[in-house]
Write a protein that binds this DNA or RNA. Structure first.
Lengths: 245, 245
DNA sequence: AATGTTGTATTGTTCAACAAACGCTCCTGC
DNA sequence: GCAGGAGCGTTTGTTGAACAATACAACATT
């Protein structure tokens, strides 16, 4: 009968009210919010209180500074969400196995989907990535960042928004976790070569829109990672060390 | 050469500084933050400026009110992130097809994983869900919420944090999208029955830890959804209507 | 046309308070 | 001895009136 009453601070109400207006559609992406003073007047609050609400709204990604100083409604981007998701996974002590199992699902599907959508434009980007990797390898620089980029490229080509959202945080953790591999004597020399080889094969398959082969090579590629982890004697059930930031 | 210069407001620096302390580990989950006045003194800012930073930190999920009023560092929960991810997908105009393709990957894996981890405790929860569904159906109430819950239960049982994070936002959109189906004359009568039947089969398979059958039935279950959508003449490539809130 | 200048609107920040809620200690009554 | 209040200090939530800094636009200058 009498449900739990919770008093929300005014700034929270401000945030929720504006958010509600946005999802309801009365404020559309691109629209400028009223000025802080106007909002304060409307709500019958001080500018300070309104500002605290706006700070939360800002962090939620629903508003941002489009052109000038004024806050504008925008469509939040999944690129903003990914780092936060990554952070959650790390702080919750996600294990290599969990990441690997997720990647084992998401990446092959990403490759498969890319085969159906790929354009000449995309191929150029992929080739550029491969070339950059070769160069980095020869120069003795790390290829991890380029690896992450490669997989992100594939996902972007596949153009499934749900998949991209799901994939990104996992990839942000999984691939950097492989840094250990490339530093390890057992895999330092062969690892990067095998990686580039797999990427090469995937691109070749995509060029001829061969989704089956692309998917197969991606799966092999993922299994390679897993095997490398084992070969190096690393425990797949341990939480990832915090150093992967 | 000359990169974009961005001057960050002080409240933003406050937020980032504290966040850095948390990820660096000098502030651990459970620790209380200093009081607003102390922070203001340390930073050499006004209490209000500090508060704006704290509001952002709060929204980011890294701090929260644990016991009393004081803010405490906490491990962010993926349950907080899911609604935001859902929002992003919806605002970006995600289509039924995208959601379905993602679910077609994630849900069967979820069922498969659950088979390996399930306990008597879990089975009780699943049975309770099934019973509640039967009851809801007989009473003519909607079973959508219970369906979402069923799939969330499976994911929780499978206990893969990366998978749960990936799955949740998709499920929050995908299953409610099926409301149309259960309102449509073509599937109104048979749909819910088939749904419960599939859930039943999955639970039965899980009870005997038969991961293959569980996964198969889940896949069939998903394909059923898709077929229903087609049968009702709905366009799978249209963005979901905004009414799924 | 490109570069200064001015003016105004809006955000960022400060200072000085006060109200309300919480946690704590200490005190009372049994 | 201890359960239950009464007070008290601490901390957050909120207000008010300012001022500084910046961005934008319109205009003047060269």
């Amino acid at each position: 009968m009498f449900n739990r009453i919770e008093v929300k601070p005014a700034y929270r109400v401000v945030c929720e009210t504006i958010e509600a207006q946005i999802v309801a559609g009365s404020l559309r992406p691109g629209d400028l919010l009223p000025t802080e003073t106007q909002l304060a007047d409307s709500f019958g609050l001080t500018r300070h209180t309104v500002r605290e609400g706006l700070r939360q709204l800002e962090e939620s990604g629903l508003v941002g500074r489009a052109a000038g100083r004024r806050l504008a409604v925008k469509v939040p981007d999944h690129a903003e969400l990914a780092p936060r998701a990554t952070q959650i996974l790390r702080m919750q002590g996600v294990t290599f196995r969990e990441l690997w199992e997720a990647s084992m699902l998401l990446e092959p599907e990403s490759a498969r989907g890319a085969a159906g959508q790929i354009t000449a434009q995309h191929l150029i980007a992929l080739e550029a990535n491969l070339a950059a990797m070769e160069a980095a390898l020869n120069a003795g620089r790390s290829i991890i960042a380029l690896d992450v980029e490669f997989h992100a490229l594939l996902a972007a080509i596949a153009a499934n928004k749900a998949l991209m959202l799901a994939r990104e945080p996992v990839s942000q953790l999984f691939f950097p976790a492989l840094k250990q591999l490339f530093d390890h004597p057992r895999t330092r020399d062969t690892g990067p070569r095998r990686l580039i080889e797999a990427h090469r094969r995937i691109v070749d398959a995509l060029r001829v829109r061969d989704s089956v082969t692309a998917e197969q090579w991606m799966r092999r590629h993922m299994q390679d990672f897993r095997r490398g982890y084992d070969v190096c004697g690393l425990d797949t059930d341990q939480p990832l060390p915090a150093s992967f930031v």
